[in-house]
Write a protein that binds this DNA or RNA. Structure first.
Lengths: 88, 88
DNA sequence: CTTGAGTGCTATATTTTCCGTAGCAATGGT
DNA sequence: ACCATTGCTACGGAAAATATAGCACTCAAG
């Protein structure tokens, strides 16, 4: 899957994940992602923008329509991860 | 999500992805993952085994019960990625 | 037995990526 | 004019991924 080339990079999935709860500013996104270095964050944001998954609004970074659909596709993964964490 | 710490690493998701179609030998898995270097592959395999998501059988590496559930949770992502690739 | 093909995997050196920190330029309020 | 907050860049060092070679093992055929 070509999408995994993009989503398999560090913080990529996590960023999308965090954006599911609404727009975030650059700095808010940093804090949400365990203070990821701004260098990487900016790189990922650029890649995700080029992939047409996020965009900038006046409220900060937001999921696009496609990004939102991806967010929905991530829901089962969320449910799974919760069960998985319990089993550790 | 703690699961993203593990799955966010390079090739981790991809490996699980490939295993959904059945057991793979080490070398088959390498080829399926665009000839990823054996060093990284082995590291990921160890991590995924410690996380109890994959195991070794006499047919090669296989998803565990939990890994299989994760595979199912990945199905919507698969569907999404196909639509997404078409939109590029 | 020994040769050959396949296996899982390790070793090593090099390149790429990531990280931590500092700080700049722009914007907007007081 | 001042300060806070914004997005983001610069830079040096640490960590991760890569490419390539090859070892040790198993198994089947000659």
């Amino acid at each position: 899957m070509a999408a995994l080339d993009l989503l398999g990079r560090r913080w990529a999935l996590r960023i999308l994940w965090e954006l599911r709860s609404g727009p975030h500013t650059f700095r808010a996104l940093r804090e949400a992602c365990e203070d990821v270095s701004p260098t990487v964050l900016n790189t990922r944001l650029r890649e995700l923008r080029e992939a047409n998954l996020i965009e900038r609004s006046d409220e900060g970074y937001t999921l696009t329509l496609q990004g939102g659909r991806l967010g929905e596709a991530l829901a089962p993964l969320d449910a799974w991860s919760k069960r998985w964490e319990r089993s550790l």
